[in-house]
C-alpha cells in the first residue's frame, strides 16, 4: 500500500472489480443472458481502465527533487545574512542563518572613504553604503520567499501522492467489503489543499521594506486554510461500476485541487514580482529597496577621479 505501490493497488482494484462484477447480477426470468453478459463486459472494460487512471500519478514530481534547489537557496540566505533578523521569516521549515562575517567588511569601507569630500565619494557613502544593510536584508527576504515557494511545491506534491494513494486504497477496501453486510464507505480528504500552509507561516511581524511582497507568499497559505476547509469526497456505490465511477470522480477532483493549489503558489510568486516592479517604479530613482544603486564612482575614470573623490585630508 502507499504511493510506492500505487500500481499494484490499481491492479488489485481491477481484479477485485472483475471478480465481484461477475456475480453482481445473475441470469433469471427477468434478466436475460445478453444483459448479464453486457453488464459483465461493461464491468471488465471499466476495470481494465483503472490502471490508466492511476498511471499518470506515478510520474508526479518527486518532492525530494526540490531538496537540491532549497539547499542552494539556504546557502544564499546564509551569504546574505547580516546577523540581525536572521531567522527565516516565511518558512516553517526555517532556521536561523548566522551572520556572514565576510559581509562585515562593508562596515570598514565607510570609515575608509569618510575623509573624501568629492560629490561621487559622498554619493557613494549616502546612497550606497548607508542603505546597503537594508538592501541586503531585503535581498535575504526575497530569497526566503523564493525558497518558500519551492517548499510549498514540495509539500503540495507530497500531499498529492498521499491523496492518490488514499483514493486507491479506499476503492480497494470498499470493493473488498461489498460482499459483507457492512460496506467500508471511505471519505477521501484532499490534504493537498492545505498542504502549502504547513510550510508557510503567517508573517505578522514587522519586516522592513519588503513586507508587502513577502506577506503575499505567507498569506497564500493562510488564505487557503482560512477560507475553506479541506474538501472531501466519498468512495461508494451499490454496484462495481458505481464504485469505479466514484473513484474516477475523486481522481478528477484531485487533479483539480492540485491545479488550484499550484495556481495559488503561482499567484503568490507573481504578486512578489509585481511588488518589486511597483517598488522600483514608485521609489526614489536614486534608491532601490532590493538592489543597491550603482554608484557613479564605479564609472570614474583617471581623468575624473580627483574631482569625484576630492580630498579634505
Amino acid at each position: 500500500m502507499g504511493f510506492e505501490n500505487l500500481m499494484q493497488t490499481a491492479a488489485a482494484i481491477r481484479s477485485k472489480a472483475i471478480e465481484i462484477g461477475k456475480n453482481e447480477i445473475q441470469e433469471s426470468d427477468e434478466i436475460p443472458k445478453e444483459w448479464v453478459e453486457a453488464w459483465r463486459a461493461d464491468v471488465e472494460r471499466k476495470a481494465n481502465a483503472v490502471a490508466g487512471k492511476f498511471q499518470p500519478f506515478t510520474e508526479l514530481p518527486d518532492p525530494a527533487k526540490f531538496n537540491g534547489a532549497i539547499a542552494e537557496l539556504q546557502r544564499v540566505m546564509g551569504k546574505l545574512s547580516s546577523g540581525q533578523d536572521t531567522s527565516d521569516p516565511i518558512s516553517r521549515n526555517g532556521r536561523v542563518y548566522p551572520a556572514n562575517v565576510a559581509m562585515t567588511k562593508m562596515d570598514s569601507v565607510k570609515g575608509d572613504v569618510q575623509g573624501w569630500s568629492g560629490r561621487a565619494a559622498q554619493e557613494f557613502i549616502t546612497k550606497f553604503l548607508t542603505p546597503f544593510p537594508a538592501v541586503m536584508h531585503n535581498q535575504f527576504l526575497l530569497v526566503a520567499a523564493l525558497k518558500a515557494a519551492l517548499e510549498a511545491e514540495q509539500a503540495m506534491w507530497k500531499a498529492s501522492r498521499e491523496d492518490i494513494a488514499s483514493i486507491a486504497e479506499a476503492t480497494l477496501k470498499y470493493l473488498e467489503s461489498m460482499r459483507g453486510c457492512s460496506k467500508n464507505q471511505a471519505v477521501i480528504v484532499f490534504t493537498v489543499i492545505a498542504s502549502i500552509c504547513a510550510v508557510l507561516t503567517s508573517s505578522g511581524g514587522a519586516l522592513p521594506i519588503a513586507i508587502t511582497a513577502i506577506g503575499a507568499v505567507a498569506s497564500a497559505g493562510a488564505d487557503i486554510v482560512g477560507l475553506e476547509s479541506a474538501p472531501k469526497t466519498q468512495i461508494d456505490g451499490m454496484y462495481v461500476v458505481m464504485v469505479l465511477a466514484s473513484m474516477e470522480k475523486a481522481i478528477n477532483q484531485l487533479v483539480e485541487k492540485i491545479m488550484y493549489t499550484e495556481n495559488r503558489i503561482k499567484s503568490a510568486v507573481a504578486n512578489i514580482s509585481d511588488q518589486i516592479h511597483s517598488a522600483q517604479s514608485s521609489s526614489n530613482p536614486d534608491q532601490h529597496s532590493f538592489c543597491a544603486r550603482r554608484p557613479s564612482l564605479a564609472d570614474a575614470s583617471r581623468g575624473s577621479i580627483r574631482h569625484d573623490l576630492g580630498y579634505t585630508g
Binding site: 514530481p61 518527486d62 527533487k65 526540490f66 537540491g68 534547489a69 532549497i70 542552494e72 537557496l73 544564499v76 530569497v143 523564493l146 519551492l150 511545491e153
Partner: peptide, 11 residues
C-alpha cells in the same frame, strides 16, 4: 541562485 534554478527546472 542560478543552480537552484537548474535544480528547480527539473523538479
Amino acid at each position: 541562485v542560478g543552480r537552484a534554478g537548474s535544480f528547480a527546472e527539473e523538479a
